[in-house]
């Protein structure tokens, strides 16, 4: 019948145009993503934006936060090390919604590490954290993040101690906060302190990616600690025998260790000819600083896209 014919034609038009529209959208997306890096933020005053969005600040903050995450992921993925928009995006996000805690926690983590892992802007990260604490003085996590930032990136142990101490005085806090404050004050026991920091992070967060990051850091710490201790033993061996051990087994035979020590992936540590301890699968263990082949750096975290 006539009307059935029209229906078939219309349905065909619908499907073809839907397919075409989707294809052109994919093309637009690809183009826009390339352009994102050179993009300029036309409205970069949080105050103006606050007025413009007619009170829907919460929603807009969520959108800006997503943009910041995406921007970071995109730039990190490309490895260009260009993170110019990151700080303004985070500023806008937190100005729109000062209570958006993830923006501070992740934001500081994005901003402070050196490229290519982060934007290498610890100053901006510090500013962000301080803004966060000013607006959320009851959140111990922000003090914790601030202390963490002072400790890991800025190596300012006095300020780190202050931050942990301030956080430990809050009604709701974490049991490790006062301990961390004390450790910072003594500035002793690097590995133990770092372990405690990461363990606190692990234990106080529900976010899978944060926990994964903490686990990776804890594993790296173990490897670093192993390598440091083995290298101490190598030095001791050399003192006693006058030569470097050829392999790890020599240390065992000399009675320094029991069994062949293995890294977190279960592979035994090896010895280089010059007596350096090496991690076989260093490429699979992010964040390690010791036991790497000369001139190599740890691959860093795998940012999930």
């Amino acid at each position: 019948m006539k009307s059935r014919h029209a229906t078939v034609v219309t349905a065909a038009v619908l499907l073809i145009s839907m397919g075409g529209a989707l294809r052109s959208l994919v093309a637009i997306d690809r183009m826009q993503r390339q352009a994102f890096a050179q993009q300029t933020l036309y409205i970069n005053s949080p105050k103006v934006l606050r007025r413009l969005c007619l009170g829907y600040t919460g929603l807009l903050a969520d959108i800006y936060w997503t943009r910041a995450v995406q921007y970071f992921g995109e730039q990190h993925h490309k490895g260009s090390g260009d993170f110019r928009l990151l700080a303004p995006l985070l500023q806008i996000t937190t100005a729109l919604d000062p209570k958006l805690l993830p923006a501070y926690q992740f934001g500081a983590n994005f901003l402070s590490p050196k490229p290519p892992d982060g934007a290498g802007l610890p100053g901006s990260a510090l500013e962000l954290m301080k803004f966060g604490i000013a607006h959320n003085p009851e959140q111990w996590r922000l003090y914790y993040n601030l202390g963490f930032l002072y400790y890991t990136e800025l190596k300012d142990y006095a300020r780190a101690s202050e931050a942990f101490a301030a956080g430990s005085r809050l009604p709701i806090t974490n049991e490790f906060m006062p301990v961390l404050a004390a450790r910072m004050a003594q500035h002793a026991g690097e590995f133990d302190t770092a372990r405690m920091l990461w363990f606190t992070t692990y234990q106080s967060s529900k976010e899978a990616s944060i926990r994964q990051n903490a686990v990776e850091h804890l594993q790296a710490l173990r490897v670093d600690e192993d390598v440091a201790r083995l290298e101490e033993l190598v030095a001791k061996y050399r003192q006693q025998t006058g030569h470097v051990p050829a392999r790890i087994g020599d240390l065992e035979r000399a009675g320094f260790i029991h069994g062949a020590p293995v890294d977190v992936k279960g592979h035994p540590y090896t010895l280089a000819a010059d007596g350096r301890v090496e991690v076989q699968d260093w490429k699979d263990i992010p964040f390690i600083t010791k036991g790497l082949p000369p001139g190599e750096v740890s691959p860093g975290p795998r940012v999930s896209k």
Partner: peptide
């Protein structure tokens, strides 16, 4: 170009 194609096809759809 792409925006034109997209808008026309989306409207058609």
């Amino acid at each position: 170009l792409y925006n034109t194609v997209y808008a026309l096809l989306y409207s058609a759809m």
